[in-house]
């Protein structure tokens, strides 16, 4: 059936089965491939997007559950004040290795800093523990979040 969606501030329509996860609607139906498929069971966080500003795992969120929620993907992150700041910190520190997980990391970090502009190390651990980086760029992810928060020495 046809679902009316608000993705990155734009009205979009997706004619898909109700059980189709948001991830595959974004990637295959809407052509927004920045959101990544990693595990399909909400274990790795590569598919993290925002629903009304809150981070969700798109791989396990059926399209029928989205309702009126405003969806923000990595493609729309630059339009968020915090998102742009996080992307800048990620670029300056060159956090990525392969880069595959980084859209999810950036969306989780953006949600964290929006909620909590001055996170402690424990806050960062708690907010980012759901995002696996197989290249293990965690040292830089932590540093980039601090830089985006204006906390670096």
């Amino acid at each position: 059936m046809a679902y009316q969606l608000n993705v990155n501030g734009k009205a979009m329509t997706a004619d898909v089965d109700p059980d189709t996860p948001l991830l595959w609607v974004l990637r295959d139906t809407l052509g927004l491939v920045g959101t990544k498929f990693g595990c399909g069971i909400a274990q790795c966080g590569a598919c993290t997007v925002h629903a009304d500003g809150a981070p969700i795992r798109a791989c396990m969120t059926p399209i029928e559950a989205i309702g009126d929620a405003k969806i923000t993907t990595i493609e729309g992150a630059s339009a968020l004040e915090v998102g742009a700041r996080v992307q800048k910190a990620w670029s300056e520190l060159d956090v990525a290795q392969c880069g595959y997980c980084q859209p999810g990391q950036i969306m989780s970090a953006t949600a964290l800093l929006t909620q909590n502009p001055s996170p402690t190390d424990d806050d960062i651990d708690a907010a980012m523990a759901g995002n696996i980086c197989r290249c293990a760029t965690y040292v830089r992810i932590r540093a980039a979040i601090k830089r985006a928060a204006g906390q670096e020495a």
Binding site: L32, S78, W90, G99
Partner: peptide
């Protein structure tokens, strides 16, 4: 020199880069 990866901008903005992104 410490030079960022050439694909960094595309990575952090979610541009298509990977095999799985092919269309």
């Amino acid at each position: 020199q410490p030079i960022p990866q050439v694909d960094t901008a595309a990575i952090v903005t979610g541009q298509p880069l990977f095999g799985i992104d092919m269309r």
